[in-house]
């Protein structure tokens, strides 16, 4: 049985390390916050100008001046700090954030990422996604393996790119792939979700890949 959204988030959380500063995208990546291992000090960054995001406020305690990048009301923690957008993206572009986990429309076998526009549809903008993938040390894509039955992991993206050769790892409902951002293209299947066969994976993946299943997931 493929992984649920929560299973995917839990798998992504295994990539966290104690002391990490992490930026989580909107959607499934948000769920990763629920799976931070106990005892780990992981600080979440919000690109609108905050480090140390707390949980949603209790009803009646919402503060219009305290929101995350999804514009939702949140709270601060004893560790929190606030800063302006230029410093926030200095942090991101300057390589100070350890990990970015975000969603995708398409990922190329070469590590290209497309997640901001579909030609012919209303374009809302890239927000901070291009800066995040260009600057953060490690980029993990968390996505459903297919969309409308069509593979999203392809030899190369057909949609306009968010970044070229920026993805280190893809975690989907079917398994985990590792990619190379430099040197020759390398797409390696390292884990299969329980009950997913190699044949299933080949059928639902648009690109050819190497197989290096280290252990049962």
């Amino acid at each position: 049985m493929p992984w649920t959204r929560d299973d995917m988030a839990a798998r992504a959380a295994r990539e966290l390390q104690d002391g990490f500063y992490v930026n989580l995208g909107i959607g499934i990546p948000t769920l990763v916050a629920n799976h931070v291992p106990t005892g780990f000090n992981v600080q979440l960054q919000s690109e609108n100008g905050m480090l140390g995001l707390g949980p949603f406020p209790y009803e009646g305690e919402e503060d219009a001046d305290l929101i995350n990048a999804g514009k939702q009301t949140i709270t601060q923690l004893p560790s929190s700090s606030f800063f302006d957008s230029a410093q926030s993206f200095g942090m991101i572009r300057g390589g100070h954030i350890d990990l970015s986990i975000l969603g995708a429309l398409q990922v190329g076998a070469n590590g290209d990422l497309a997640n901001w526009m579909i030609p012919g549809k209303m374009v809302k903008g890239m927000g901070g996604a291009m800066d995040l993938v260009a600057g953060v040390k490690r980029v993990i894509v968390l996505m459903e393996h297919t969309a409308g039955g069509k593979p999203k992991l392809l030899p190369e993206c057909t949609l306009p790119l968010t970044g070229a050769r920026v993805v280190d790892m893809v975690i989907s409902d079917l398994g985990v792939f590792e990619l190379a951002r430099k040197g020759p293209t390398r797409l390696v299947l390292t884990e299969l979700a329980p009950g997913v066969t190699l044949e299933d994976m080949r059928e639902k993946t648009g690109a050819t890949f190497e197989v290096a299943l280290a252990k049962a997931a």
Binding site: D6, L24, I26, T30, L31, A33, N34, L44, S46, L53, G54, P55, F56, P57, Y58, E59, E61, E62, I67, N68, A69, G70, K71, Q72, T73, I74
Partner: peptide
Amino acid sequence: QRTVRKHAAAAAGPDHLPR
């Protein structure tokens, strides 16, 4: 986007959603 969590007594499940 007004987002809130329930008070501790009623809290069950993933309400620690920072964004």
